[in-house]
Structure formats: C-alpha cells, structure tokens
Simulated assay, not measured.
Amino acid sequence: MPSRDQDRSDAGAALTELILDLFRLSNRMLASGDRLVAGLGLTSARWQVLGSIVATERPQPVAWIARDMGANRQNVQRIVNDLESEGLVEFQANPHHRRAHLVVLTARGRDIFEAAMRLQAPWINRLSEGLSVEEIQTTHGVVAALERKLGLDAKD
C-alpha cells in the first residue's frame, strides 16, 4: 500500500507537519488564553472578538467583524450577543443597512479589554523568551503567505 506522503512534495510534507503543529498550538493557545482572562469573565473567543472590535477604525456590523477575523458569522454573532447581554458591547443603527446593526464597544467593554491586555503583556513576554525577533517575523511571514493563498482558494 502506498504511503500517504508519496504524492506530496518535500515542501508539501513539511507544510503538512507544520499545519498539524499549528492545530495543536491553536488549541493550547486558546486554553491558555481562557485561563489568562477567566477572572475577567472572558474566554479567548470573547477576547478575540473584543480585540477585533477595538482594531477597527469605525464601528462595523457582525458580518464584517467575522470576515476580518476569518471566522464564521454565526459564531461571531453568538459571541457578540453574549457580549451585549453582559454590557461589553452595544448595537447601534447602521445608516447604510437597516438590519445589519453596528457593534460598538461600551466603556465597560473597553475597561475589560484593557485589563485583558494588561494580563497579556507579561504572558506574551514570557512566551517569547528564547525566540528571536527574526524567527518570529519569519514565522509570521509564512503564516501570512498561507492566509493569502487560502483566501485566494476560497474565492475560486
């Protein structure tokens, strides 16, 4: 019986191993993030959505937030609804679309997000120990290239 790797190029086999490592890393990153912000009443998913809202230049509807995150709109909608029920975000009328309300961070939401980021700084500094900026930038470049390629594949 032929090996599963038989049809893969050397780069394809190496990328397969990297992707498997990224899956494991993602799971560990989410679990670690959950532990880091649990005391603030957040999860990694809620923190990520808050961060996406903070990163925008102006309020956006859920569909745009989900697109920017590369996430499923329904999942982001559920999280935004939870954040809204806890007073961390609010919905505002969208002058360009009656039904797609804009998501806006509340003062409480901003305070919680900033508290999470204060916890994140020492955590990320510990995590980055022993890694060079060049190694991190190279890895970032590979991940960004894969994101671009996957984005192009999704449009086909």
Rank of each mutant, 00 (worst) to 15 (best):
S3H: 12
S3K: 14
R4S: 11
D5L: 14
R8G: 00
S9D: 03
D10L: 12
A13D: 13
A13V: 02
I19M: 12
I19P: 02
I19W: 08
L22S: 04
F23L: 15
R24F: 07
S26Y: 10
S26V: 00
N27T: 11
L30E: 14
R35L: 12
R35S: 14
G39R: 10
L42R: 02
T43K: 05
S44T: 14
S44W: 14
S44I: 05
A45H: 09
R46Y: 04
R46E: 15
V49G: 04
G51D: 09
I53G: 06
A55D: 15
P59G: 10
V62Q: 01
A63D: 00
A63T: 09
W64A: 13
W64Y: 05
I65T: 09
A66T: 03
R67N: 06
M69N: 07
G70F: 06
N72L: 02
R73M: 01
R73P: 08
N75Q: 10
V76E: 05
Q77P: 01
Q77T: 10
R78C: 03
I79E: 06
D82K: 11
L83Y: 07
E86V: 01
E86R: 15
E86F: 07
V89L: 04
E90L: 13
F91H: 12
N94D: 13
P95N: 04
H96L: 05
H97L: 02
H97P: 01
A100G: 00
A100V: 00
L102T: 05
V103P: 05
V103C: 09
T106M: 06
T106N: 01
A107G: 08
A107Q: 13
R108A: 15
R108S: 13
R110K: 08
D111Y: 00
D111S: 09
D111M: 03
I112F: 04
E114F: 01
A116E: 06
Q120K: 12
A121E: 13
P122S: 04
P122D: 02
I124W: 10
S128C: 09
E129V: 12
E129N: 07
G130R: 08
S132R: 11
E135N: 00
I136S: 06
Q137G: 01
H140M: 00
H140T: 07
V143A: 12
E147R: 14
E147S: 09
R148V: 14
R148H: 12
R148N: 07
L152V: 11
L152T: 10
A154P: 00
A154E: 07
